[in-house]
C-alpha cells in the first residue's frame, strides 16, 4: 500500500492505495469523481483523460502514486460554478455529444488542444489531435465543429482580455 497526496480540482486530497491503483480508479473510487470514465483497458479510447499539471493525460496510463504531488483537473473541475467552460458550452451548443460517455475525455483533450494552439485550429488538425479519443455515437462531425467553435470563442476571449489588460 502507498500513500498518495495531490490537489484535485483545487482541493487537497490524500489516501492510501494499493500500489497497482491507477489514477483513474483513485479519482473514481476514492474521490467519487465519476465523471472520468473507463472505456477500455489499453489506453486507446481516451474516456479517462484528465489534466495532470496542466497537460492532458489518460488517467489509466498513470498510477495514482505517480500522480502524487501533482495538480489534477477533472471534468468536474472545469466549469466556473454554474458557468460552463467555453469547450463544455460548445459541445452542448453544437450537439457534440450523444450518450455522453466519451464526452468528459473529449472535452479535457480539446481544452488541452486549444491551449496548445493559440494561433487557432483547422479541421485537419482537430481530427488528427482527437485520434486518441474514440466516440461511437457522433461520427466526430459535431465534436470537430464544437472544438473549432470553442477555439474561436476562446481566441476572441483572450484577445478581449489582452485588450483590457493593455
Amino acid at each position: 500500500m502507498s500513500d498518495v497526496s495531490l490537489v484535485v480540482n483545487g482541493r487537497k486530497v490524500s489516501g492510501t492505495v494499493e500500489d497497482r491503483t491507477l489514477l483513474v480508479h483513485f479519482l473514481r473510487e476514492n474521490l467519487g469523481l465519476t465523471g472520468t470514465h473507463v472505456g477500455c483497458d489499453t489506453s486507446q479510447c481516451g474516456a479517462c483523460v484528465v489534466h495532470v499539471d496542466g497537460k492532458a493525460v489518460k488517467s489509466c496510463t498513470m498510477l495514482a502514486v505517480q500522480a502524487s504531488g501533482s495538480t489534477v483537473t477533472t471534468i468536474e473541475g472545469l466549469a466556473n460554478g454554474t458557468d460552463l467552460h467555453p469547450v463544455q458550452a460548445a459541445f452542448k451548443e453544437n450537439h457534440g455529444l450523444q450518450c455522453g460517455f466519451c464526452t468528459p475525455g473529449m472535452i479535457m483533450t480539446s481544452v488541452d488542444m486549444i491551449a496548445r494552439h493559440p494561433e487557432g485550429l483547422d479541421e485537419a488538425t482537430v481530427r488528427h489531435e482527437l485520434e486518441g479519443n474514440i466516440c461511437r455515437c457522433t461520427g466526430y462531425h459535431n465534436i470537430v465543429k464544437a472544438v473549432l467553435a470553442a477555439s474561436k470563442t476562446m481566441a476572441k476571449g483572450s484577445k478581449g482580455r489582452a485588450k483590457a489588460a493593455a
Binding site: T36, T74, I75, L84, Q88, K92, H95, L97, T103
Partner: peptide, 17 residues
C-alpha cells in the same frame, strides 16, 4: 440544444459503474 447535456458535459452523468 439538448436538456440532458449539462450533466454530461460537467461529468455529472450517472452510469451503472
Amino acid at each position: 440544444a439538448r436538456k440532458e447535456d449539462r450533466r454530461f458535459v460537467t461529468g455529472a452523468g450517472r452510469y451503472v459503474d
